[in-house]
Design a protein around this nucleic acid. Structure first.
Lengths: 261, 261
DNA sequence: GAGTGGTCTAGACCACGAA
DNA sequence: TCGTGGTCTAGACCACTCG
């Protein structure tokens, strides 16, 4: 029904073309970050396609973190570039679980702490707030030596968390989700190498000055507010972080003239 | 049309129920790994739902890595547990790109090598095969000091790779994909901490015995065969690995009686 | 040529959020 | 109450694989 301009893009499914068009319009500033995209109904009329096609297109944008959707509200622009500033090509599953599954956390200490200026920065919190702080060691099953030291901070609104035991076999964030009905939507992770402090080397029972992996996870809820931050420090020889990425979704062409459609 | 058994699951969308049912049947051994699931058409009839519902259900299974699909062939069971053996909850985008984008690789050496027994193990190759080996240093833009040392091995069938320059601004796998028309479908990644060797510390210009990040990536094609393996070793203070996970798909309930459906 | 999954249409009902 | 996105139906055509 619509004349194809004769690009390689014309061979792609309509919903990819539509997603590309929308991406370009977002990047062109037609739909600024924070604004609402036209509703599905409007897009259907505007582009002369069915709702299915529109939804598939928007699904692509959601997958790339460009927009998010809320029933009863609409489709809100979240970013103007496909996550990570460039052609995002990979997606897939991860062994985020490798932690709490098949390992257990022995809690050595937990108490309410007042956030000082130092901590406040890392937690994006205000000094003076009172957070729940938990420290412990992680063990692999059947291993006598711990493979990681852990310190967790839990936001004030969840500090009344119940169900902490000296030995935890499930992730803390699951406990929080269950008790407070909140949903973890995003987890940010950072990994770097460190030289273990003497104190840590002692606790992990490795030689002083050993290398270690520092791994931080920040759990955010649906309003993008920090729920829990965990820092794990691992003895180098007892921990490898593994993950796999699968290329399973359509990659949108970079910038691209979309013609009429 | 179907009586609800009165579980909390009954409140979930049909396609989640269906996905759960299929998951349970896979785990029960009704559809062994490697076998084909019934076709969409059959599932429609069998469960009295439309193709849309069936496809949404299978989409969930695909997202969890349980099955893969091939047009003209069918839906093949790939695994019998949601990736990582337990409640798989996260999925999302990653900054796999952070490497080659905005950084450049200075190649110091590249040549064809014969694989010895030692290398063969890591590459899942046979001793005697001849692979392309590339070594170099990675620089961040504007930084005089390299932040990583890199060694790459490229499988025999791609060893005729052209286009290697002393300075590479795009990932090697992109070059391979372009020249040989192969598609990278899966990337496996491993990260661990190491103490830098004297030689490496010298090349990266950091003090001896410094901690470093060891990062390996294995790029697999659509036939799950190794195309490229890269090992990157980073000075601890010049590199942080960041990624984010977004929970954007429905989580299937763990094990669960599915009743009749 | 028969059958597969991929794409697409034109409807429909629902829960939920905003006014 | 009205409009949103989420779910769902019952069709359709296509490119592809396989026998």
């Amino acid at each position: 029904m619509k004349a194809k301009s004769g690009a390689s893009l014309a061979a792609m499914p309509r919903y990819v073309q539509l997603a590309t068009t929308l991406l370009n319009e977002i990047q062109a500033g037609k739909f600024p970050v924070g604004s609402l995209l036209p509703t599905e109904h409007v897009l259907c009329q505007q582009f002369g396609v069915s709702r299915f096609t529109v939804r598939e297109a928007i699904k692509l944008l959601v997958q790339q973190g460009l927009v998010n959707r809320q029933p009863g509200v609409g489709t809100r622009v979240q970013a103007n570039a496909p996550t990570g500033q460039y052609t995002q090509t990979m997606s897939g599953l991860t062994d985020l679980q490798q932690y709490a599954v098949e390992t257990s956390l022995e809690i050595t200490r937990h108490h309410i702490v007042e956030i000082d200026a130092n901590l406040a920065k890392g937690l994006c919190a205000s000094p003076g707030e009172t957070w729940l702080e938990i420290e412990g060691l992680r063990y692999a099953p059947g291993q006598p030596l711990p493979f990681a030291w852990t310190r967790v901070h839990i936001a004030p609104r969840f500090r009344a968390l119940k169900g902490l035991q000296s030995r935890m076999d499930q992730p803390l964030y699951v406990l929080i989700e269950q008790q407070f009905g909140c949903k973890i939507q995003v987890v940010h992770q950072e990994i770097k190498a460190v030289t273990l402090s003497n104190e840590l080397a002692r606790q992990l029972k490795v030689p002083p000055k050993s290398a270690g992996i520092w791994l931080q996870r920040r759990y955010m809820d649906t309003h993008d507010e920090l729920v829990e931050q965990a820092i794990n420090i691992h003895a180098a020889d007892r921990f490898t972080y593994r993950e796999s990425f699968r290329r399973d979704f359509v990659t949108l062409p970079g910038t691209l003239s979309s013609g009429k459609f």
